[in-house]
């Protein structure tokens, strides 16, 4: 799978400075905006698939020693790596922003962490929801669907910033057991949805590219 990830890295290389710029701009705009940068990075696998489709890469890839599972899984892994990378960049950018703004009293609080965790969570879920449709219909046809999903996510984020903060306060302010249960259920949900999504994507990929 290393070769597949390397290929996607080369394909997306030119997009990375944009991501960096966006992350920095958001960091200076305020902590809660970082979530958009994380979500943008979660969608980079879709861009990589668009390039693959344009060059009919999948047919060439079928001549290489990769299983369908590896071909599909590599896009999920790419998304997850991008989420982690953008979170790290966001955190660094925000620390720099705080220093530049001379915010001597800057202390990462619940809100700070909840934004990152919320962004990562939404990113993972978005990957899991979008990729099966992209695998089935292709980027162009799935564009409408994922535009709706993105709009939906943006609306949730905008209207529920308070909700995310409150949830974070609630989770971390609750008893250890309640917090543990909530975090565990959330993680389990993300893992289950991702596993199910990967299985569906493999099946769609097989049907679309091998029949």
């Amino acid at each position: 799978m290393k070769g597949l990830l390397l290929k996607d890295y080369y394909v997306l290389k030119k997009q990375l400075p944009i991501l960096l710029l966006m992350t920095t701009a958001f960091a200076f705009a305020g902590n809660s905006f970082s979530i958009y940068a994380i979500i943008y990075s979660a969608l980079l696998p879709v861009t990589a698939i668009a390039y693959d489709e344009r060059s009919k890469w999948d047919i060439l890839a079928s001549s290489m020693p990769y299983t369908i599972r590896q071909l599909v899984l590599s896009k999920y892994v790419l998304g997850w790596i991008m989420i982690i990378a953008s979170s790290v960049v966001c955190a660094a950018a925000e620390l720099i922003a705080a220093a530049v703004k001379n915010a001597a009293g800057f202390k990462p609080d619940f809100s700070y962490f909840s934004n990152f965790i919320g962004g990562q969570y939404i990113g993972v879920m978005l990957i899991a929801l979008i990729l099966p449709f992209v695998m089935k219909a292709g980027v162009e046809k799935a564009r409408i669907l994922y535009s709706i999903l993105l709009g939906f996510c943006a609306a949730i984020i905008i209207t529920s910033r308070f909700f995310i903060d409150s949830l974070a306060q609630f989770v971390f302010g609750s008893s250890n057991l309640t917090a543990f249960i909530i975090i565990s259920v959330s993680l389990l949900l993300a893992v289950s949805v991702s596993i199910l999504s990967i299985k569906i994507s493999i099946s769609f990929y097989k049907k679309k590219n091998r029949t």
């Binding site: 070769g3 290929k7 080369y10 693959d52 060059s55 060439l60 020693p65």
Partner: peptide, 20 residues
């Protein structure tokens, strides 16, 4: 059916090295 259009021959070499 080719390698994606954004990559170079040198990069193709690196991808193949990681593949075969």
């Amino acid at each position: 059916s080719y390698f994606p259009e954004m990559i170079t021959a040198r990069q193709v070499g690196s991808i193949l090295k990681a593949t075969y």
